[in-house]
Design a protein around this nucleic acid. Sequence first.
DNA 1: TAAATCACTTTCCTTTTGGAAAGCACTATA
DNA 2: TATAGTGCTTTCCAAAAGGAAAGTGATTTA
Lengths: 115, 115
Amino acid sequence: MPVKRGYNDCIKTIIPVRDFLDVMSGKWKFPIIVSIGVGNDRFVDIQESIPGITPKVLAKELKELEKHQLIKRTVLSEYPVKIIYTHEPYADTLTPIIYAMKDWGINHRKKVIGT
Amino acid sequence: MPVKRGYNDCIKTIIPVRDFLDVMSGKWKFPIIVSIGVGNDRFVDIQESIPGITPKVLAKELKELEKHQLIKRTVLSEYPVKIIYTHEPYADTLTPIIYAMKDWGINHRKKVIGT
DNA sequence: TAAATCACTTTCCTTTTGGAAAGCACTATA
DNA sequence: TATAGTGCTTTCCAAAAGGAAAGTGATTTA
């Protein structure tokens, strides 16, 4: 006769992981954070540093990152008007995750090519 | 006169980060990996351990994770027929990322509630 | 007056993701 | 024969994400 089974509770890990994903999911947010992190602070510079991103998507993602207090938008009233994007300190908390993803990606590419 | 500007190259980080995202992006893959990791090996157990997931989505994501050699699907010919899902060793390479995401999520929730 | 620069915005469209509800195939037991 | 358990699949649909291409508005220089 079948033994009664029951699932193991993992909600204490799943909830924070999903909190993280709610903020940082999608194809573009990490590339944008990385680009700003290396010093790209202008819209067009960020755009050119990320292959394939369109201005529409970049504008939308920048707004979301600003909303979550990961980046700051500053208007400089010079000519031509400059707008610069910089990291808020909170963005630095993502650094360990970025390195972990980067390491995984490097290893994964080796694995896939090596197969 | 405007100073010539040029973007900083961050492609060596962006490429591996995107390789990672190509495999692991989406709302459900990490929760599924976590659930299997704590010992849920049956379809329905995994389903019940992840709030909100539907069987359609779970089936699709399990196939993708299997394709990427992160989990293994094993058929046990008992009655009733059992199918169990277990981690491949490769799934363990995600552990540091899962902990980093979890820590970030816990801290983020504190920050948001505390505001 | 025309052109250039910058930082986007707008429109239109396709693709991907997610979700609700029901159904199906198999086997075994009552 | 009817019912139950397991692991899905199917259908239909809505929402979100992504992309191509062109346009906008403010300003200043030629």
